[in-house]
Design a protein around this nucleic acid. Sequence first.
DNA 1: GGTAAAACTTAGCTTTGGCTAATTTGCATT
DNA 2: AATGCAAATTAGCCAAAGCTAAGTTTTACC
Lengths: 165, 165
Amino acid sequence: MTDQSPVQADLPAADTAGGAGEEARAHEMRAPEMQAEAFQAVRQARRSEVAEDYLELIAELIELMGEARPVDIATRLGVRAPTVAKTLDRLARDGLITRARYRSVFLTEEGRQIAEECRRRHEIVVRFLLRLGLDQETAEQDAEGIEHHVSARTLALFAEFAGRD
Amino acid sequence: MTDQSPVQADLPAADTAGGAGEEARAHEMRAPEMQAEAFQAVRQARRSEVAEDYLELIAELIELMGEARPVDIATRLGVRAPTVAKTLDRLARDGLITRARYRSVFLTEEGRQIAEECRRRHEIVVRFLLRLGLDQETAEQDAEGIEHHVSARTLALFAEFAGRD
DNA sequence: GGTAAAACTTAGCTTTGGCTAATTTGCATT
DNA sequence: AATGCAAATTAGCCAAAGCTAAGTTTTACC
């Protein structure tokens, strides 16, 4: 691969823009492999974000309302019914939920475990943000986006900071 | 819309699963509109994540290596060259970069501003995580995912906690 | 019990963001 | 100057996640 492929000084932008010491400056960049791994991990996480949102919400609906109906999932996610239908098909295909046509949705054991894990993370992140001084509304809001990108290590620190109770 | 559409007790899952008081329990859920807005905001943020990653990296490459070449972008993002090419086309279409065929990439004024904003956020998040006790490696890693989902309000608290210097 | 509304599904379109394979261009080195 | 290699592009594939419009099924209500 290219790796740290030599970027010489004879390139137009180099002399005009910076003016001095590209090679010396290059030291300040992270190692390309490290950076690539970080981005790959983020993309990995992105791929499960939607599924996690659905599973977490389905669990919540089942627990608090007795069942998870597509119409409620759609309302609470702010998407249209056909979008929900298609996503539920994928979740079923992946063995995370079970469903019968025109009926509400159930979690498989695997789906239940993921949902529980997500809920735990979500709550830690919310409590952490609240403890940091954020208002309830913004905390909930930001947690929804942040929770999918918090490593186990970071989550542990969040939990610790949020308070030992 | 459905809103808080009546979920009656004559549905199969309701009686068997929960057993008691769906309506009372429903109180514990967030308001559907609030929840929907939160998820919509997250989806909104998701749509700019990739663009922000590119712009931030392009700015970094230009500053530290004198220019931003597609091959380096690909290496550091951990994706293939054609993926970069297509994304750069989108960024150019959206007026965030300029480019000539077979040449390296430049930021427009708008792109530059977004990149700068992203970099600022990124650094705050990293410093915050480090201050929290995380190792450099994980901090960089998690920041890459978290930075796109931090509201202005939360960012301010992060900055405060990290300590302004 | 019939009927209308609500819920759900199906069909089909769009964009994004990834990939491989094959081609074209630019540069460096002989 | 020729040639080969690295970089970039193009073409074309795929899946995810959104949408509208139209059709089907269930439920609710009289």
